[in-house]
Structures are given as C-alpha cells and as structure tokens.
Write a protein that binds this DNA or RNA. Structure first.
Lengths: 343, 343
DNA sequence: CTGAAAGCGCTTACAG
DNA sequence: CTGAAAGCGCTTACAG
C-alpha cells in the first residue's frame, strides 16, 4: 500500500499534464480541452486524490471555514432551541462547497473577544456569524478592526458596516397581544429576556407598543437573563403584585415553561385562571400540558440564509441585506379567555 | 498602515535573526539563548505577529482542529441538553492550545459517512469525537479505513481500536429503580430510547436487570427515538395497557416531560397517581410542576475529558481509556409512593 | 489550449 | 547556540 497520500503532482504525472492543469480542472477554470479534462479526472479518481485543503488554503489565503462564537451559559444554551437548528441551517449552506463551521462556546465577554482575536490572528475562519446582537455591540468595532468579515444575524442598533440577515420578531409578538386582547384580556404581564440583547430589548418594546395600541399598560414587566430560573422568579414577582395579571407573555419558551410550573404550583389553572404565551416555538412546548401557545420562527432557514449571505460577501466583497419571513403565532392550549369576572 | 500582514520573515529581520529561530521560539524548542529569545519576542510583539495557522498546518501536516459530527434530527437535538454542554467542555480543552472545534450536523447515515470522508480527505480535522455510539457502528471501520484518529464517547460494543472515555449510566438507572422500589412501586413501566444507540440499549438492559434483582418484571416497555413526540405516544400506550403502571421510567428528560403532560392531560396526578423519572438532568426539569426526578451526568466534564484524551492520542500516538464518575440520581418531586391500594 | 516556475508562510533537518 | 535552504501541496500569473 502507498504510505504516502497522492498529491497533485502524482495526478499530473499520471495524466501526462502539468500540475497547473490539474488545479484548473478542480477549480472549474476554463481553458482545459475536454479530452484532457477527462484524462485528469480519471487519473485523480484512480489515485483517489482530492485537493488538500491545507495547501489550498495557504495558496488562496482562505481557511474555507466560517466561525460562530456563542457567548451564553451552557445551561441556558442547552435550554434554547435556536442554536442547534440555526447551526444545522448554516451547515446546509456550507457543505455543498466543502466549507466547514468552526464553533466556539465562550463563557464571558473577555473570552469572546479573545476568541475573535485568535480566530482572526490565526486565520482559522474567513468570516463570522454574529448572533445575539447587543446594544452598542463591542464586537462590531472589534471585527472591523480585525478586518474579519461578518454578517449580523438580526438587525443591529446602528449601521454596522456588515450585511444584515433579519427575521422579524415583532409581528409575532404583536400577534400574541392581538390574540390575548381578542380573548378579552386586559391585565397582561410580561416576562422579558436579557435587554442587553437587542432581541430582548425589542420584544419588550414591541409588547409595550402593541398593548398601548389598545390603550393598555402592562400590569407588570420584568427583565431577566432568559433562563428558566429567572422566568420562574419573575412569574412569582408578577403574581405577588397587587394587580394580578390574567395573562403572562414570556420572551422565551423555557421561561414560559418555568412560569407555567409556578402557576400550577400555586393551584392556578392555565389557561382558565391565567393564560401563558412563549416565544421561539421550541418542540417541547407542543408536548406540555397545556401545550404552549408561542411564536415560531424558522431558525434553520435563518442559519442557511445567514451563511449564504456571508459566503456571498466573501466571494463578491459585498452582499445585500436579507429580510426573512416573519415569525408567526402558534396558538395552542395555554391561552384562553380571562376568568369571570374579568374584574 | 501596512496593508500586508507581517510574516515570520519580518519578525526575523527586525530581531536580526533567521526565520528558523523565530519559529523555534514560538514552538518552545530548546536551544535559543535567552537574550535572543527576548529580542525575538519583542520584535513579534511590536509587529503584532502571530504564527499563521494555515502555513503552520501545511508544514506540520496538522489542521489543529477536532471534528464532531452529530447525526440527529435538529429538533431532537434542540431538545437535548447533552450536546451544548458537551461542546462547551470540548472547547475548554482546545482553547488553551489554540485548537478549534469543527462541527457538523448531519441528517442521515449517508451524509454522516460523506462528512467523515470529506473531513479526512481534505484534512480539515486531526481527529474526531464519536458520540451516540451505535451497535456494530459503521463509523468505527470507516474511520479506521480513513486513518482518522478518534475517541469513543461511551463504550462501544466491541473493541474499537480507539480510546474510550466513558461515563457510566447504569449506576444512575439502578438508583432510579432502587428509589422507586423503595417507595413501594411494583408496577413500573419503561419508555426507552433509540435502541440502535448503545446508550439506549444499555439503559433498557440495566432497567430490566435492576427490576429483576427485585423479582419484578416491567409492566410495559416501549422503545422510541428519544423524541418528545415518541415519549408521549409511548406513555399513552403504557397507560392503555391492561396492567397500569404506578411509575414510569423514561430514558431521557424530554420524553419524561412529554409523558408528564400525557398523564396530566388524563387527569392523573404526578406523583400521587403515577411517578415519573427522567434521564440526563436537563435544567428545565427542575422548573417543571412537579420538578422532575432524574439522573444527572456531567456532559461538560465528559466533553473536556474526551477532547483531552483525543489530544493525547494525537500527541503520543496512544492514550489510555478513561472512566468518569458515574451519573447520579437527582430526587425531586415527580416521584412518590404508589397510590393506595397498591393493588 | 498547455507548461514551467514562483509563491503562499511556516517548520525542520542539516551544517556550522 | 545560529543560519541557509528545502519542503509542505497547492494556485496563479506569465510565457508560449
């Protein structure tokens, strides 16, 4: 057996051509006569040769990989349905061209910045996908300074200089409010997420605005870190407030699940005594009792689209922003009319 | 500004030495005089130079990255607390030496095999972490054939030729059975996982053996695909069987959550009418009503250990198997004595 | 349409 | 302890 892997030189020799020709064929460059091309392809197949990405990377100055750096607590991340589906979407866009996803899970801001610096310095990735955008996000200037191309997954709060691939939350959250108000609710509370993250901030603002559109004020509004534990604590706080809500809107499904349990533990029936809505459409929500009314996006499509735009940016030096179909309300059984008397 | 990144040659020139010396310093090779070393380090710092991983990879024939190929449905994956924590653990082992995790999420066996072949052919990774081991796992001979080093995360069903990093499930599952039998349960049903996966198979066998140790037979035993939907369906089947269980043991937390809902939907109280146990210790389980009794492992430690062993294998050409502390029972409130009369 | 050669930025024997 | 040079396996102008 050959202990040595075949190289492009072996293929060239076998096909009776120069290395350059072999390279042309494998990079779909024009100007190789069909018969020559066939001969080269045959020689490569016989030797089982494929271009070595390491060598190719050094020549092309491309790592042929995209980076995703996620700064979230692993336990919060584990409860979140977004990332696995998002990554699966990214994969579908990368696989066909032989690119690869480099993933980093970091605990805090320092590790996050260090990771981007390291990825850039060692050129481990050609570009990055920016998720969980924050206000005045430090990553934007950092990446610009590093010269590392990026796409924003979600709209940043100021022009970022990077393409944006957005999936609108607001429509879904407005639909939640319409749904609840339509059922007769007037005392609605809100358990928000991390308002350091733009989607947390925007969901809260959208909720407020939608209620105001009906001349209503939230009976309570708590910010959290998106964790189930925080969702439970916030629920307790809202239930203990003087004006008890007849419906609770949560900014994420895991929090809604935890909130549901708090209600049940107090002997309150959902939805008869209090309605509950989630956000993000996690699979498990459909298998709860009661099944969770929520807002479902399509993170897989989002991932595919974001990777596609980043690839285009790398290929062409520029790429258009992209707006995906908005997230939609999924009415299940955790919502219903408020209790009589609506008081 | 310099449009060109500095190279090792720039650093060498500035320090007044050869490129080789610079390389020696950055690879901790002996034989560089301390003052020279200082000069080189200073020059590199002034230029902001770091070794280029692409070039280094070509020379060393190492990609400096580990691969993780996960073949699971994204929605099942999203419900599973294992992977995010596992990956975070892998990261902690890689970060310190500047290695990186290449992640692939694939839908089926064909895509899985194609991904391993591609990773090997293009040398995108130096080794892979094998999770979700199956019986007669095709990946074992495939990887051996490709010459791609690996470590088994969990014990394979036959000697694999790769180091094994194992975390024993069995102790936890036995503790579940002891706990339930100790509470007085005699009619215990089991909702298993995918028995194509070894941990699914082993949990089932352990459950049976533990029951048998008390002279008991399962009143029902259903295999599933580990999904919440399948967990719900299995629960319905078990409840409709002639001999109704007073306790249900699930092979995963998401299934237990879905099963809980099925029980509640039927008006059965947990644990008064039926006890429920999960497996894997997902965070959300603690925030359910009732809070889920389950078996908690430490996937983060597992990930770190597995990556550590793979790194050792790559460095030394060999590595010892590693046995981690076993998963432990977490008693919460979804378990209690069986209803009277125990019939 | 094809070939010969330089170059990507490192590492690593080999000489001294 | 240090330097000069070959080599990793590709890609890509440049000539013809």
């Amino acid at each position: 057996m050959d202990v040595r892997r075949p190289t492009i030189a072996d293929v060239a020799k076998r096909a009776g051509v120069s290395k350059g020709l072999v390279s042309f064929v494998f990079n779909d460059k024009p100007g190789v006569a069909a018969p020559t091309r066939e001969r080269i392809l045959a020689a490569a197949a016989e030797l089982g040769w494929q271009p070595d990405q390491l060598a190719r990377s050094l020549s092309t100055q491309q790592a042929a990989s995209l980076g995703l750096v996620v700064r979230r607590d692993p336990t919060v991340l584990a409860a979140d349905p977004f990332f696995p589906a998002f990554m699966a979407g990214v994969e579908t866009a990368l696989t066909e061209r032989g690119w690869v996803l480099v993933l980093s899970l970091v605990p805090d801001a320092d590790a996050e910045a260090a990771t981007y610096r390291s990825l850039a310095a060692h050129r481990r990735v050609d570009g990055v996908l920016l998720t969980d955008l924050r206000r005045d996000d430090e990553r934007l200037p950092l990446l610009a300074g590093l010269g590392l191309p990026a796409v924003c997954v979600g709209r940043p709060d100021a022009p970022a200089g990077f393409p944006v691939v957005n999936l609108d939350d607001a429509a879904g959250l407005r639909a939640v409010v319409e749904h609840l108000v339509g059922l007769g609710h007037r005392r609605i509370g809100y358990v928000g997420g991390d308002v350091g993250m733009l989607h947390g901030l925007r969901r809260r603002a959208t909720f407020r605005a939608a209620l105001a559109g009906h001349g209503l004020e939230p009976v309570g509004l708590v910010d959290t870190d998106f964790s189930a534990a925080a969702g439970a604590a916030a629920t307790t706080a809202l239930l203990d407030a003087p004006e008890r809500p007849t419906a609770l809107v949560y900014a994420s499904d895991p929090m809604a699940v935890a909130g549901l349990a708090v209600l049940q533990r107090r002997g309150l029936r959902v939805p008869q005594d209090c309605s509950v809505t989630g956000f993000d459409g996690m699979e498990l929500g459909a298998h709860l009792h009661p099944a969770l009314t929520t807002v479902g996006a399509d993170p897989l499509a989002w991932g595919r689209a974001a990777a596609g735009v980043l690839l285009r940016l790398l290929d062409d030096g520029r790429a258009e922003d992209l707006e995906l179909p908005a997230a939609a309300l999924l009415v299940r059984s955790s919502t219903g009319p408020p209790p009589d008397p609506p008081a």
